[in-house]
Structure formats: C-alpha cells, structure tokens
Amino acid sequence: MSDFFTATVLFSTLAAGIRLSTPFLFAGLGEMVGQKSGVLNLGVEGVMLLSAFFAYWTALSTGSLWLAVLVGTLVGLLMGVVYGLITVVFHAEQGISGIGIFLFGLGFSDLMFQEKVGTPKFTSKLPSVDIPLLSDIPHVGVAFFQHSAMTYAAFVMVPLVMILLRRTTFGTNVRAAGENPESADSLGVSVARIRFSAIVIGNTLAGVAGTALVLELGIFQPNLTAGRGFIAIALVYFGAWRAPGVMAGALLYGVVEATVITWKALGIIPRSLSDISAMAPAVITIAALVILARRVKPPAALTQPFSRH
C-alpha cells in the first residue's frame, strides 16, 4: 500500500482518472441538457460508437485529427436530428427509441469497421497540450496540465452548460419544457423546437465523447465504448441534473477506475479479488446515487411526450 502513497503514483493515478472521466463528462453533460428538456436518451452509447468510428476512420484516412474531431461531432449532431425526429416529431416512446439508437450504433459501427478497416490499425492520437508554466509544476503539472485539448474542453464545457441553462432564455425554456411543457407552451414557447434543440446539443456532445475516447486511444474496436454511454446517463442522476454534479460523478467514476487499475498493478488488490474490484467504480457510484437520489427530483416531464392539442 505504501507504494501507492508516493507523489508520482498518486498524481499519475489522478491524471489517469481525469483522462478516463473525459468521455463521461461530455456525454453526461449532453444527456443532462436533453433530460432538462424532458427527453431521456438511452442511445448515448450508440451515438458515441458511431462518432468514435467515423472520427477514427477519418483520422486513419486523412491523417487529420481536427477533421476527425469535426466529423465525429457532426455525426453526433446528425444522430441528434434523427433522435429528435423520432421522439419529438413522431412522439415515439423515448426509452425504446433510445435503445434502438444504441443497437443501431453498435451494429452499424461494427459493420463499418469490418468493411472499411478490418484488422485494427493505430492512427495518430490527440497530442498532449502542456499548459505553459503550470505543466512544469512537479507532479501537479502531470495530473492537471498535461492533457489533450479534448480533456480541457470537457471541463470548460461545465461552466458553459451552466451558463446555457441558467443564464440564457434558451436555458430557461429548456427547463420549462422539462418541468411543465403545458405552461411553457401557453407562454408561447415552442416546446417541440426547444426539445429538438436540446436533443441535438445532447447528441452532439455524445458524439464529442466518442470522438475524445477514440482519439485518446488512437484505435477503434467494436463496442469500444464498453458501456460508457450508459454510465454517463447514470451520472446525470448522480449529478442531480446539475453540471457540477455531473462533473463530480464523472471524476469520481474515472478516479476510482484509475485507482483500482493502479492498485492491481501494484499488487495491492489480491488477484483473487481482481474481477470483483473491477466493479468498484459502478458500486461506489450507485451507492452515492442511492444516497443522493432521495434529495433531488428529476425534471417533472422527463420521458413525457408533448403535443399541442
């Protein structure tokens, strides 16, 4: 255990936790925006997979990482439009539609990977962007100031989403659409348009999450996301539909995941407990969720379709 409590190991574990939390944060913030408007999207995982594949394929084909980021983001946006059509325009049941999007993303990204790539190949990864001066601080620099641009962007998104939802007319309308769509409608707010926009924003961020994941690794594999999209949905509940709460949940999950991996590498966790300990991030997050969930309520109209009579 003493091996763990050295500055090098502690801060490198923290750095790993921040890296691991990046996709959760993007996807969780996006899902939160959608849920605040009253729309549950269980298809986050599928959108992440689609964006991850197309970003990877773009990077592999063109060598341009920024073009890959753009393509991955646009795929998320496109899937947002699709999901908006399904749930807002055609009033399809949100849970089933989301699962459909997930299955589509899982199958189509797999198919495209086999057709267009086949054997796994590495592409270039997002480079580390060292923040001048701060990155040179011993240990702290490694943990906080030597990450990819996507990781910094994920944390910058937290205040941006807060401002969007709390300080703008759009945000007020989003919350109104999620809490009491009939009242919002009576005040002249187009609930359908607001929900559609929120879904597009949410899916775009899910696309960015998948893009960040694949470009951090430099390689794609079928089912690359390994359930991260679903965890992101849980983190919205964990975060009580607040951006800092989602960030706290993402960081908690990522840091616990990184700590478990480091403890395994150091032999602190016995091999006999290895598989059980892999569940630790989920167990801790769910435990926290159970405690916190009693104090907060979801948007009142979450999962409820709205149509003008």
Binding site: A226, E257, K264
Partner: peptide, 15 residues
C-alpha cells in the same frame, strides 16, 4: 493486472 474486461480498450491502456 487483470482489467476485468475482455473488451475495454481504454482500461487496458490505463493498465
């Protein structure tokens, strides 16, 4: 280090 997953590429990278 057993990651606890056959398919989690990101965890394998962190391991």
């Amino acid at each position: 280090t057993y990651t606890g997953s056959f398919g989690d590429v990101a965890l394998a990278a962190e391991a």
